[in-house]
């Protein structure tokens, strides 16, 4: 156990990376922020629709989608990957629906069956075409956010726009923000009251599949950075942490940005300190921040709950 947890030194953990390689560090932290913020925005709607685990399912089942897209197109270009991921995502959602509508298997089991089988199929394809597909099973599970500074740079003329994945994630994030502004009302209504939405002439299924489309795109852009399983954390944690602090949806959506920044920055430094996976450390930070909110939230925290309970008992005793 000796030396398993390295000694903490503020200078090496927090200051040196920014002194030695400010640009590379900034790309890593920036990517982390973009991933958590983009996932947080999409994830908030998933959590409110009680579909958090659909995010889990899609993040797993896009694997066969991108492997097949890779095998067909022969390239790791953005478009084939996106197309494969979106197709796999929509197929997943449709299959889950078909199973629980067409048989008495409950939605939870249907979800578990679909995503695990598709993911298994993806792993098999990956293992069989290992020398053809430039995707590493480990990367699928953990992501390689630490490699961001080494990725090929996007350039316009001689102006560098930063590493490709970061640029791509940035574009996805901006598009998501734009879509959110455009369709906020519809998303709100279809999430909270599909019946009302129908009576207002809003097609709930359009927004449902639209959200699934956004989810697939976000997940496929993120998973290279953080891996399929940690993507779920990025989808869920900002929303639930926000829910602990406020009841207003716009505020929860707004909170995903500072939360994302904290996950990314603190996670990066935690990983440096412990010399471990950056994506993993980001999620550990996310979990810890949720824990803080869970205990100390002024209205819904455990402490507030304990106080309220004592008050009721007191009240019952004096009544």
């Amino acid at each position: 156990m000796n030396g398993f947890i390295p000694a903490f030194d503020f200078q090496t953990v927090f200051v040196e990376p920014w002194q030695w390689d400010p640009v590379g560090t900034a790309w890593i932290v920036g990517m982390g922020f973009l991933v958590s913020a983009a996932c947080g925005l999409v994830g908030t709607f998933l959590v409110f629709r009680r579909m958090a685990l659909v995010g889990d399912a899609i993040s797993h089942s896009i694997l066969p989608g991108i492997v097949i897209a890779f095998l067909i197109s022969g390239s790791r270009g953005v478009l084939p990957m996106m197309a494969g991921a979106v197709a796999a995502g929509l197929v997943t959602v449709a299959l889950i629906e078909a199973i629980h509508r067409g048989s008495r298997v409950k939605p939870d089991a249907a979800l578990g069956i679909v995503f695990s089988t598709l993911f298994a199929l993806g792993v098999i394809l990956l293992a069989l075409f290992a020398d053809k597909v430039d995707l590493d099973p480990d990367c699928v599970l953990y992501g390689e956010i630490g490699l961001m500074p080494l990725m090929q740079e996007a350039r316009i003329g001689s102006v560098s726009l930063g590493p490709w994945p970061v640029l791509q994630m940035g574009i996805v994030f901006l598009v998501l923000v734009a879509l959110l502004f455009l369709f906020y009302k519809q998303l709100l209504v279809t999430s909270f009251d599909p019946a009302l939405a129908r009576s207002l002439g809003i097609r709930a299924s359009v927004y449902h599949y639209g959200l699934m489309f956004c989810l697939s795109v976000t997940v496929v852009s993120s998973f290279e950075a953080v891996g399929v399983i940690l993507v779920i954390a990025m989808l869920i944690f900002p929303a639930v942490t926000g829910t602990m602090l406020t009841d207003r949806l716009p505020l929860i959506l707004g909170l995903t940005l500072p939360l994302g920044a904290m996950y990314s920055l603190l996670g990066f430094h935690l990983a440096l300190w412990l010399d471990t996976s950056i994506a993993g450390a980001m999620v550990v930070v996310a979990g810890a921040l949720f824990g803080v909110a869970w205990i100390f939230s002024p209205r819904k925290g455990l402490l507030a709950l304990a106080l309220a309970r004592r008050r009721i008992q007191h009240e019952a005793a004096t009544a």
Partner: peptide, 13 residues
Amino acid sequence: LTVAYHKRPVLYG
């Protein structure tokens, strides 16, 4: 008999 769910009392005395 008093019963409370979460913070909300449901039955009093």
